[in-house]
């Protein structure tokens, strides 16, 4: 038996909106640690890892580890029917082939349940090694989204370079080229508006902008984003989910053939 009650149901709505473009079908894993997911996009170029820790739920019952295969588009369709202020409860029976999403309005005057069919998904689980990154950039998530959107109107790829001068996002296309440099800026009024660059070694990597733009669908989840870079490693673009966990996107770089 599984029963997870999330008072801030809008978080789950936002999580689905952030990953459904990248991943079609995925197994949600439920254990005493929390509600998690790991899945690759269909081209096996990007990977998404989600964790919603059990402590973040008002009620968390998971009698035994369960893996539930869901079509994310269908799940998103159901969660769209929940109000932004609704409490969402996820329920499933051991060995069952459905999951139920229950939505309660804040005043308890409307209670809905939506039952969705589960599916068998044969997906491989990847081991993500602990890595020391050469550089970690923390910046406002809206700023990062703006940069990715702006650059994708000029080119298809972005070169992200971190030096002691700052972080540079560059692109080139048929009509010309563009460079955007963000300097470390910690003297802002609010910490979430700061750009913080933690660099051990200079790093420069090239990525497909199409994927970066897809990751920025997670912007509503967090005011800040952290971008961890090492030469010859996938970049990690992380959006922390307040009090609960994170959505991390890993993207393999473009490399010399």
């Amino acid at each position: 038996m599984l029963e997870l009650r999330l008072v801030q149901g809008s978080l789950l709505k936002k999580v689905l909106e952030s990953i459904k473009e990248l991943v079609t079908d995925a197994n949600f894993d439920c254990s005493s640690t929390g509600f998690s997911l790991q899945a690759m996009d269909s081209s096996h170029v990007a990977l998404v890892a989600l964790l919603l820790r059990s402590e973040g739920f008002e009620h968390y019952r998971c009698d035994r580890n369960m893996s539930m295969g869901m079509n994310l588009n269908n799940m998103a369709k159901m969660l769209k029917c929940a109000g932004n202020d609704d409490i969402i409860t996820i329920k499933a029976d051991d060995g069952g082939d459905t999951v139920t999403f229950m939505f309660e309005s804040p005043t308890q005057d409307k209670i809905s349940d939506f039952e969705m069919k589960l599916m068998d998904i044969d997906s491989e689980h990847l081991g993500i090694p602990e890595a020391e990154y050469h550089a970690i950039v923390k910046m406002p998530s809206s700023e990062f989204a703006r940069i990715c959107r702006d650059l994708s109107s000029i080119g298809d790829t972005v070169v992200i370079s971190v030096t002691k001068e700052g972080v540079k996002f560059s692109t080139k296309g048929d009509i010309g080229s563009a460079n955007i440099v963000c300097r470390q800026n910690t003297s802002v009024d609010k910490p979430e508006e700061a750009t913080v660059i933690d660099m051990n070694e200079p790093v420069s990597l090239t990525f497909a902008l199409r994927y970066m733009n897809s990751f920025t669908k997670a912007t509503p989840l967090s005011n800040t984003v952290s971008i961890s870079l090492s030469n010859e490693l996938p970049v990690v673009v992380e959006y922390k989910i307040a009090e609960m966990g994170y959505v991390r996107f890993y993207l393999a770089p473009k490399i010399e053939e």
Binding site: L47, L126, P234, A252, P253, K254, I255
Partner: peptide, 14 residues
């Protein structure tokens, strides 16, 4: 010219 690497190049199955 650069080619797009895949995730499997860096992370193995577990």
């Amino acid at each position: 010219l650069k080619a797009q690497a895949r995730i499997a190049r860096y992370f193995g199955s577990c």
